[in-house]
Design a protein around this nucleic acid. Structure first.
Length: 403
DNA sequence: AGTCTAGGTCGTCACAGTTC
DNA sequence: GAACTGTGACGACCTAGACT
């Protein structure tokens, strides 16, 4: 059975952002690679784009008669829900027209592109936006999904708007939650989104309390137990749940021998499959790892020096596992884009050749009617006809390429 | 049905480069 | 200098399809 990982490729490959055409070279050539932006700055830069998307949705949708979207909050799944009654998403947002979807899709793709060029602190937001993109695309034909897309987008907007007041660790955490919320909405599961008391923001988009998503991953997993129609959503939700977002429980894993060296059939300690621990409430590192309290004398937040070698190894393996996944996904997208470029260029090439043939045919016909000294066919074939000029004139007219 | 093979996915290691 | 990220390389595993 092929593994069903999060499918980000749709949003990535469909984006028009030029950066997307060649992520690897682009990152390497412009010196961006390795330069990490602070999560707060990242989120701040993304927020306007998301806000723009949401505004576009609301504006375009204003002409339609919208259904009412109930985002109910279940206290059973979210303890914080008891303090906040069910709230309706504004009708303008709930009634997404096809044009709005197209517009949103474009903007979201751009957002996805921006997020992708950054690092792990925004990967969850990127995941959310990509899901939204594919979801918005598929939602054109289904009214209910449009409303869910609106809710999901509003959630993502809220997540993007919130980070400036959050520390970097919480930025990632809220990103995860927004991704989960978006996925829940996209998969038709109970969103459990908590609107804040502040109500509408400047853009007319309801502001959601990102902090209230604290219970999301746990019940998200519960919600998928019954059978999620969306493999993408289920997989990412599971991933989110297994990421120790709110848990620091470190699996007691003994250092295992190299998989290459291990004898066949030897039980493999699956660090990644260790059950998600759910007691941690502390901050997270930028990549979602629980931020370890500083060891005495440790100058770097989250120092692993006080951990046992086994624990350090387990963490490194887990991070590398995630990094490898990300890298492969990135590579896959890169290859896909290259293939698409090849196809596009081949199409363009054949189109231009056809155009040349047509123009040549026209010129040939014209040449038969009028006596022309020039040979336009040569020009159109890309062969540069030698102008009947002196070499002196040539030298003065064109700059020397060797200089 | 059993075997072979190609292709894909995944985890891990090693290493270079970056960040703090 | 420790911790971190990204990525190539490798081996293990799985699956689908072809072949016997």
């Amino acid at each position: 059975m092929p593994s069903a990982g999060p499918d980000y490729t749709h949003a990535l490959t469909s984006a028009k952002d030029p950066h997307l055409t060649s992520p690897f070279p682009e990152l390497d050539s412009d010196g961006e690679r390795g330069k990490k932006e602070q999560p707060t700055a990242i989120s701040a830069s993304i927020a306007p784009e998301m806000t723009t998307a949401a505004t576009a949705l609301a504006t375009t949708a204003a002409t339609a008669q919208p259904p009412s979207l109930e985002i109910s909050v279940s206290p059973a799944v979210n303890p914080l829900a008891a303090s906040a009654p069910s709230t309706s998403v504004p009708d303008a947002l709930a009634s997404l027209t096809h044009a709005a979807h197209d517009q949103a899709l474009e903007i979201i793709n751009s957002l996805q592109s921006s997020a992708r060029r950054r690092r792990s602190s925004v990967e969850a937001v990127a995941a959310a936006s990509s899901v939204l993109a594919s979801f918005a695309s598929s939602a054109k034909a289904r009214h209910a999904n449009r409303t869910e897309a609106a809710a999901a987008l509003a959630t993502a907007v809220a997540a993007a708007n919130s980070p400036p007041v959050l520390n970097p660790q919480m930025t990632y955490s809220s990103g995860q939650h927004s991704a989960a919320a978006a996925l829940l909405a996209a998969s038709g599961l109970h969103p459990g989104i908590l609107p804040t008391d502040s109500g509408m923001g400047d853009t007319g988009i309801p502001q959601f309390d990102v902090a209230s998503f604290g219970a999301l991953p746990a019940y998200a997993v519960e919600a998928t137990v019954g059978g999620d129609p969306s493999n993408t959503a289920q997989t990412l939700l599971t991933t989110i749940a297994e990421t120790p977002t709110r848990s620091a429980g470190k699996p007691a894993v003994a250092a295992k021998p190299s998989r290459r060296k291990a004898a066949a059939g030897e039980p493999d300690l699956e660090l990644s499959m260790s059950p998600p621990s759910s007691q941690f409430d502390g901050p997270l590192t930028s990549n979602g790892m629980p931020l370890t309290p500083d060891a005495p004398g440790s100058g770097r937040p989250g120092s692993l020096r006080h951990l046992t070698p086994d624990e350090r190894r387990a963490r490194r393996l887990q991070r590398n596992r995630l990094a490898a996944k990300e890298c492969r996904q990135k590579k896959k997208v890169y290859i896909t884009n290259l293939e698409q470029q090849v196809e596009d260029l081949e199409n363009e090439n054949s189109r231009l050749r056809k155009e040349i043939e047509e123009l040549n045919a026209k010129l040939t016909l014209g040449g038969m009617r009028t006596s022309s000294t020039a040979d336009p066919a040569l020009v159109l074939n890309g062969e540069s006809p030698q102008p009947k000029r002196s070499r002196v004139a040539d030298r003065s007219a064109a700059p020397n390429p060797d200089v």
